[in-house]
Protein backbone atom coordinates (compact mmCIF):
# COMPACT_ATOMS: atom_id res chain seq x y z
CA UNK A 1 0.00 0.00 0.00
CA UNK A 2 2.90 2.25 0.72
CA UNK A 3 3.71 5.03 -1.66
CA UNK A 4 0.79 4.49 -4.01
CA UNK A 5 0.59 8.20 -4.71
CA UNK A 6 4.29 8.47 -5.50
CA UNK A 7 4.29 5.29 -7.53
CA UNK A 8 1.59 6.51 -9.85
CA UNK A 9 3.14 9.82 -10.72
CA UNK A 10 4.54 8.42 -13.94
CA UNK A 11 1.48 6.74 -15.31
CA UNK A 12 1.31 8.06 -18.87
CA UNK A 13 1.49 5.07 -21.18
CA UNK A 14 4.19 5.70 -23.67
CA UNK A 15 3.66 4.99 -27.32
CA UNK A 16 5.94 2.16 -28.23
CA UNK A 17 7.25 1.26 -31.61
CA UNK A 18 5.14 -1.58 -32.96
CA UNK A 19 7.92 -4.15 -33.23
CA UNK A 20 8.42 -4.10 -29.48
CA UNK A 21 4.89 -5.26 -28.71
CA UNK A 22 3.59 -8.79 -28.45
CA UNK A 23 1.45 -9.98 -31.40
CA UNK A 24 -2.12 -8.64 -31.31
CA UNK A 25 -3.71 -12.00 -30.48
CA UNK A 26 -1.40 -12.52 -27.51
CA UNK A 27 -2.31 -9.07 -26.23
CA UNK A 28 -6.05 -9.74 -26.46
CA UNK A 29 -5.68 -13.18 -24.89
CA UNK A 30 -3.85 -11.68 -21.90
CA UNK A 31 -6.31 -8.79 -21.59
CA UNK A 32 -9.22 -11.25 -21.77
CA UNK A 33 -7.76 -13.48 -19.06
CA UNK A 34 -7.06 -10.51 -16.79
CA UNK A 35 -10.57 -9.11 -17.28
CA UNK A 36 -12.17 -12.50 -16.63
CA UNK A 37 -10.20 -12.83 -13.40
CA UNK A 38 -11.15 -9.31 -12.28
CA UNK A 39 -14.80 -10.00 -13.15
CA UNK A 40 -15.02 -13.24 -11.16
CA UNK A 41 -13.07 -12.09 -8.12
CA UNK A 42 -13.80 -8.35 -7.81
CA UNK A 43 -16.54 -6.98 -10.06
CA UNK A 44 -19.24 -9.62 -9.58
CA UNK A 45 -19.17 -9.46 -5.76
CA UNK A 46 -19.52 -5.68 -5.99
CA UNK A 47 -22.54 -5.88 -8.29
CA UNK A 48 -24.13 -8.71 -6.34
CA UNK A 49 -24.39 -6.59 -3.20
CA UNK A 50 -26.70 -4.07 -4.84
CA UNK A 51 -28.78 -6.72 -6.59
CA UNK A 52 -29.27 -8.67 -3.36
CA UNK A 53 -30.01 -5.43 -1.48
CA UNK A 54 -32.85 -4.43 -3.82
CA UNK A 55 -34.19 -7.98 -4.34
CA UNK A 56 -37.23 -7.36 -2.14
CA UNK A 57 -37.87 -3.88 -3.41
CA UNK A 58 -36.98 -0.33 -2.55
CA UNK A 59 -39.29 -0.25 0.48
CA UNK A 60 -37.45 -3.08 2.25
CA UNK A 61 -34.16 -1.40 1.34
CA UNK A 62 -35.16 1.96 2.81
CA UNK A 63 -36.68 0.32 5.89
CA UNK A 64 -33.49 -1.66 6.53
CA UNK A 65 -31.19 1.32 6.47
CA UNK A 66 -33.45 3.69 8.42
CA UNK A 67 -34.31 1.22 11.18
CA UNK A 68 -33.13 2.46 14.60
CA UNK A 69 -30.54 -0.30 15.18
CA UNK A 70 -28.99 0.44 11.80
CA UNK A 71 -28.86 4.15 12.53
CA UNK A 72 -27.24 3.67 15.92
CA UNK A 73 -24.71 1.32 14.29
CA UNK A 74 -23.97 4.03 11.74
CA UNK A 75 -23.50 6.59 14.53
CA UNK A 76 -21.09 4.32 16.41
CA UNK A 77 -19.11 3.59 13.23
CA UNK A 78 -18.76 7.31 12.49
CA UNK A 79 -17.80 8.05 16.09
CA UNK A 80 -15.06 5.39 16.17
CA UNK A 81 -13.62 6.76 12.91
CA UNK A 82 -13.84 10.40 14.02
CA UNK A 83 -11.73 9.57 17.08
CA UNK A 84 -9.20 7.13 15.64
CA UNK A 85 -8.43 8.75 12.27
CA UNK A 86 -7.19 12.14 13.66
CA UNK A 87 -4.99 10.50 16.32
CA UNK A 88 -3.43 8.20 13.74
CA UNK A 89 -2.96 11.14 11.38
CA UNK A 90 -1.11 13.06 14.06
CA UNK A 91 1.02 10.01 14.72
CA UNK A 92 1.67 9.50 11.00
CA UNK A 93 2.92 13.05 10.56
CA UNK A 94 5.12 12.88 13.68
CA UNK A 95 6.61 9.51 12.69
CA UNK A 96 7.23 10.56 9.09
CA UNK A 97 8.86 13.82 10.23
CA UNK A 98 11.24 12.03 12.61
CA UNK A 99 12.08 9.30 10.10
CA UNK A 100 12.46 11.38 6.95
CA UNK A 101 14.13 14.55 8.23
CA UNK A 102 16.70 13.13 10.65
CA UNK A 103 19.39 10.46 10.78
CA UNK A 104 19.37 8.12 13.74
CA UNK A 105 20.22 4.57 14.68
CA UNK A 106 17.57 1.87 14.34
CA UNK A 107 15.48 3.73 11.79
CA UNK A 108 14.73 0.60 9.77
CA UNK A 109 13.71 -1.17 12.97
CA UNK A 110 11.32 1.64 13.85
CA UNK A 111 9.73 1.43 10.38
CA UNK A 112 9.25 -2.32 10.88
CA UNK A 113 7.61 -1.72 14.27
CA UNK A 114 5.21 0.76 12.69
CA UNK A 115 4.18 -1.96 10.23
CA UNK A 116 3.43 -4.43 13.02
CA UNK A 117 -0.36 -3.93 13.10
CA UNK A 118 -0.51 -4.87 9.40
CA UNK A 119 0.93 -8.27 10.26
CA UNK A 120 -1.37 -8.94 13.21
CA UNK A 121 -4.63 -10.80 12.62
CA UNK A 122 -7.64 -8.55 13.39
CA UNK A 123 -8.90 -11.14 15.85
CA UNK A 124 -5.62 -10.90 17.78
CA UNK A 125 -5.87 -7.10 17.65
CA UNK A 126 -9.14 -7.43 19.55
CA UNK A 127 -7.81 -10.14 21.86
CA UNK A 128 -4.92 -8.02 23.17
CA UNK A 129 -7.31 -5.39 24.51
CA UNK A 130 -9.48 -8.04 26.12
CA UNK A 131 -6.34 -9.39 27.83
CA UNK A 132 -5.54 -5.91 29.14
CA UNK A 133 -8.93 -4.47 30.03
CA UNK A 134 -11.40 -7.39 30.08
CA UNK A 135 -13.01 -8.63 33.29
CA UNK A 136 -10.22 -11.22 33.71
CA UNK A 137 -7.58 -8.97 32.18
CA UNK A 138 -4.51 -7.36 33.78
CA UNK A 139 -6.31 -4.11 34.55
CA UNK A 140 -9.80 -5.68 34.78
CA UNK A 141 -10.27 -5.65 38.57
CA UNK A 142 -8.79 -2.14 38.88
CA UNK A 143 -11.19 -0.81 36.22
CA UNK A 144 -14.09 -2.70 37.74
CA UNK A 145 -13.53 -1.06 41.14
CA UNK A 146 -13.78 2.32 39.51
CA UNK A 147 -16.75 1.37 37.37
CA UNK A 148 -14.92 2.03 34.12
CA UNK A 149 -15.89 -0.18 31.24
CA UNK A 150 -13.59 -0.46 28.26
CA UNK A 151 -14.32 -3.87 26.76
CA UNK A 152 -17.85 -4.30 25.36
CA UNK A 153 -18.09 -0.49 25.26
CA UNK A 154 -17.03 2.46 23.10
CA UNK A 155 -13.44 2.81 24.44
CA UNK A 156 -12.64 -0.78 23.47
CA UNK A 157 -14.07 -0.28 19.98
CA UNK A 158 -12.00 2.88 19.54
CA UNK A 159 -8.82 1.18 20.82
CA UNK A 160 -9.24 -1.79 18.49
CA UNK A 161 -10.01 0.49 15.54
CA UNK A 162 -7.01 2.74 16.29
CA UNK A 163 -4.73 -0.31 16.52
CA UNK A 164 -5.84 -1.76 13.20
CA UNK A 165 -5.56 1.57 11.35
CA UNK A 166 -2.35 2.62 13.13
CA UNK A 167 0.14 2.38 10.18
CA UNK A 168 -1.97 3.80 7.34
CA UNK A 169 -1.03 7.50 7.37
CA UNK A 170 2.57 6.85 8.44
CA UNK A 171 3.00 4.25 5.67
CA UNK A 172 1.82 6.72 3.06
CA UNK A 173 3.90 9.67 4.31
CA UNK A 174 7.24 8.00 5.11
CA UNK A 175 8.24 7.04 1.54
CA UNK A 176 6.86 10.31 0.18
CA UNK A 177 8.77 12.50 2.64
CA UNK A 178 11.91 10.36 2.35
CA UNK A 179 11.87 10.90 -1.40
CA UNK A 180 11.55 14.66 -0.88
CA UNK A 181 14.36 14.77 1.71
CA UNK A 182 15.06 17.56 4.21
CA UNK A 183 16.50 20.11 1.75
CA UNK A 184 13.51 22.43 1.33
CA UNK A 185 12.97 22.58 5.08
CA UNK A 186 16.66 23.25 5.66
CA UNK A 187 16.53 26.10 3.16
CA UNK A 188 13.56 27.52 5.09
CA UNK A 189 15.62 27.39 8.32
CA UNK A 190 18.44 29.27 6.61
CA UNK A 191 15.91 31.92 5.61
CA UNK A 192 14.91 32.26 9.24
CA UNK A 193 11.67 30.26 9.40
CA UNK A 194 10.60 28.83 12.77
CA UNK A 195 9.45 25.27 13.59
CA UNK A 196 5.72 25.22 12.92
CA UNK A 197 6.08 27.86 10.23
CA UNK A 198 8.29 25.44 8.29
CA UNK A 199 5.74 22.68 8.69
CA UNK A 200 2.71 24.71 7.59
CA UNK A 201 4.39 26.65 4.78
CA UNK A 202 6.91 24.19 3.35
CA UNK A 203 6.21 20.60 4.39
CA UNK A 204 2.41 20.48 4.36
CA UNK A 205 1.99 21.84 0.80
CA UNK A 206 4.46 19.19 -0.37
CA UNK A 207 2.74 16.26 1.31
CA UNK A 208 -0.92 17.30 1.23
CA UNK A 209 -2.09 14.78 -1.37
CA UNK A 210 -0.24 11.86 0.19
CA UNK A 211 -1.55 12.88 3.59
CA UNK A 212 -5.13 13.10 2.34
CA UNK A 213 -4.82 9.71 0.66
CA UNK A 214 -3.45 8.12 3.83
CA UNK A 215 -6.31 9.59 5.86
CA UNK A 216 -8.91 8.32 3.41
CA UNK A 217 -7.50 4.79 3.47
CA UNK A 218 -7.28 4.98 7.25
CA UNK A 219 -10.91 6.09 7.40
CA UNK A 220 -12.11 3.33 5.07
CA UNK A 221 -10.45 0.69 7.21
CA UNK A 222 -11.67 2.33 10.44
CA UNK A 223 -15.30 2.30 9.32
CA UNK A 224 -15.07 -1.17 7.85
CA UNK A 225 -13.10 -3.02 10.51
CA UNK A 226 -14.82 -6.24 11.47
CA UNK A 227 -12.67 -8.85 13.22
CA UNK A 228 -11.00 -6.68 15.85
CA UNK A 229 -14.16 -4.78 16.70
CA UNK A 230 -16.13 -8.01 16.78
CA UNK A 231 -13.96 -9.30 19.65
CA UNK A 232 -14.26 -6.21 21.84
CA UNK A 233 -17.79 -5.04 21.07
CA UNK A 234 -19.96 -7.58 22.83
CA UNK A 235 -22.55 -7.27 20.03
CA UNK A 236 -25.15 -5.36 22.01
CA UNK A 237 -27.76 -4.29 19.47
CA UNK A 238 -28.38 -0.57 19.35
CA UNK A 239 -25.45 0.04 21.70
CA UNK A 240 -22.12 -1.50 20.76
CA UNK A 241 -22.85 -2.62 17.22
CA UNK A 242 -20.96 -1.02 14.36
CA UNK A 243 -22.20 -1.18 10.76
CA UNK A 244 -20.09 -4.21 9.74
CA UNK A 245 -21.24 -6.07 12.88
CA UNK A 246 -24.83 -5.14 12.08
CA UNK A 247 -24.37 -6.67 8.62
CA UNK A 248 -23.22 -9.90 10.27
CA UNK A 249 -26.10 -10.06 12.75
CA UNK A 250 -28.72 -9.53 10.04
CA UNK A 251 -27.01 -12.11 7.83
CA UNK A 252 -26.93 -14.70 10.58
CA UNK A 253 -30.64 -14.08 11.21
CA UNK A 254 -31.29 -14.87 7.54
CA UNK A 255 -32.47 -11.31 6.89
CA UNK A 256 -30.41 -11.32 3.70
CA UNK A 257 -32.00 -8.32 1.97
CA UNK A 258 -31.60 -6.13 5.06
CA UNK A 259 -28.05 -7.37 5.53
CA UNK A 260 -27.08 -6.54 1.95
CA UNK A 261 -28.87 -3.19 2.21
CA UNK A 262 -26.73 -2.16 5.18
CA UNK A 263 -23.69 -3.64 3.40
CA UNK A 264 -24.43 -1.42 0.39
CA UNK A 265 -23.85 1.64 2.60
CA UNK A 266 -20.36 0.33 3.26
CA UNK A 267 -19.89 -0.27 -0.47
CA UNK A 268 -20.66 3.41 -1.03
CA UNK A 269 -17.91 4.21 1.45
CA UNK A 270 -15.51 2.00 -0.53
CA UNK A 271 -16.54 3.55 -3.86
CA UNK A 272 -16.10 7.04 -2.38
CA UNK A 273 -12.61 5.99 -1.22
CA UNK A 274 -11.66 4.76 -4.70
CA UNK A 275 -12.99 7.89 -6.40
CA UNK A 276 -11.05 10.09 -3.99
CA UNK A 277 -7.95 8.05 -4.73
CA UNK A 278 -8.31 8.64 -8.48
CA UNK A 279 -8.94 12.32 -7.85
CA UNK A 280 -5.85 12.66 -5.65
CA UNK A 281 -3.68 10.86 -8.21
CA UNK A 282 -4.96 13.14 -10.95
CA UNK A 283 -4.34 16.24 -8.83
CA UNK A 284 -0.84 15.32 -7.71
CA UNK A 285 0.03 14.19 -11.23
CA UNK A 286 -1.07 17.56 -12.61
CA UNK A 287 0.93 19.46 -10.03
CA UNK A 288 4.13 17.56 -10.76
CA UNK A 289 3.56 18.07 -14.48
CA UNK A 290 3.15 21.81 -13.87
CA UNK A 291 6.36 21.99 -11.84
CA UNK A 292 8.26 20.24 -14.60
CA UNK A 293 7.36 22.96 -17.10
Amino acid sequence: MAGVVTAHLSRDPELRPRHRNEPRWVQWLLIGLALLFMLLIVALPLVSIFIEAFKRGVDVYVASITESDALSALRLTLLAAVISVPINTLFGIAAAWAISKFRFRGKQFLVTLIDLPFAVSPVIAGLIFVLLFGAQGFFGPWLDDRNIQIIFALPGIVLATAFVTFPFVARELIPLMQAQGPHEEEAAVTLGAKGWQIFWRVTLPNIKWGLLYGMILCNARAMGEFGAVSVVSGHIRGQTNTLPLHVEILYNEYQFSASFAVASLLVLLAVFTLIMKSFIEWKSHRETAKEAH
Binding site: P45, I49, G224, F226, P244, V247, Y251, V267
Partner: peptide, 14 residues
Protein backbone atom coordinates in the same frame (compact mmCIF):
# COMPACT_ATOMS: atom_id res chain seq x y z
CA UNK B 1 -7.90 -1.28 -4.94
CA UNK B 2 -11.43 -2.36 -4.03
CA UNK B 3 -10.25 -5.08 -1.61
CA UNK B 4 -8.35 -2.39 0.33
CA UNK B 5 -11.41 -0.17 0.55
CA UNK B 6 -14.26 -2.66 0.95
CA UNK B 7 -15.00 -3.81 4.51
CA UNK B 8 -14.07 -7.47 4.83
CA UNK B 9 -17.46 -8.56 6.14
CA UNK B 10 -19.13 -7.09 3.05
CA UNK B 11 -16.69 -8.92 0.80
CA UNK B 12 -17.47 -12.08 2.76
CA UNK B 13 -21.24 -12.02 2.30
CA UNK B 14 -20.93 -10.94 -1.35
Amino acid sequence: DLPFALPTAVAGIA
